[in-house]
Computed example of a mutant assay.
Amino acid sequence: MDPNLKAKIDQACRTAEEFTKVYYESVDKKRHLISKLYLDTGLLTWNGNGITGCEPIQKFYIELPSTDHTVVTLDAQPVYDMAVNGQLTFLIQVSGHVKYQNKSAKTFQQSFVVTALGDKWKIVSDCFRLQEPLSAEK
């Protein structure tokens, strides 16, 4: 394996661990700070609903019931330089369980595209989906 690629994959995995710790702590306990994690033009797709911009995303999260996330799996990979004009960018994939207020825990899957902005990681795109069975009706 190319040593540069190996180093980038290792960096993506370390970044994913650090980033998701901060992200889920913010969602669960510090929602008033969540907008700081997104680019100004960031995109959140939450169970099929799209929201663009860090302030509308923060407003959306503040209006959700309180949550407690548990990460079960975590993976990350670098995004090919040619696709992002050499900008350091990673794809992070997470699955786990989320408990909303007094309800039972549900399984979720979430994918992030994060990019380096100075010494901070900012969310370019965030896709969250509760893992519920599709309806049997057609």
Rank of each mutant, 00 (worst) to 15 (best):
L130W: 00
H32M: 02
T41N: 11
V114G: 01
G50I: 12
W46K: 02
V27Y: 04
Q101I: 09
I51F: 09
E63F: 09
T115L: 06
F90A: 03
D126P: 07
Q131W: 01
K36E: 15
A16W: 08
W46T: 03
T52H: 06
H97A: 10
W46Q: 01
F108L: 01
F90N: 07
M82A: 12
W121T: 06
L5K: 13
Y80I: 12
L44N: 06
Q101R: 13
K59H: 12
Q11W: 02
R129D: 03
D75A: 13
Q109Y: 10
K6E: 15
D40V: 10
L39C: 13
V94Q: 03
V84S: 07
H69N: 10
E63A: 15
H69Q: 04
V72F: 02
K29T: 13
K122N: 05
N47Y: 00
T67I: 06
H32C: 04
A76T: 11
K122C: 14
T52P: 00
F19I: 04
A16M: 06
V94L: 02
G118P: 02
G96Q: 04
L37S: 06
L44Y: 04
P78K: 10
Y24R: 08
L64P: 01
F108Y: 15
F128Y: 14
N85Q: 13
L33E: 12
Q109M: 11
P56Y: 03
A136Q: 14
L88N: 05
Y80V: 13
L91T: 10
A116N: 07
M1E: 08
A83I: 09
Y100G: 00
S66F: 07
D28V: 09
Q101H: 10
F108S: 02
Q109L: 08
S26H: 09
Q101S: 15
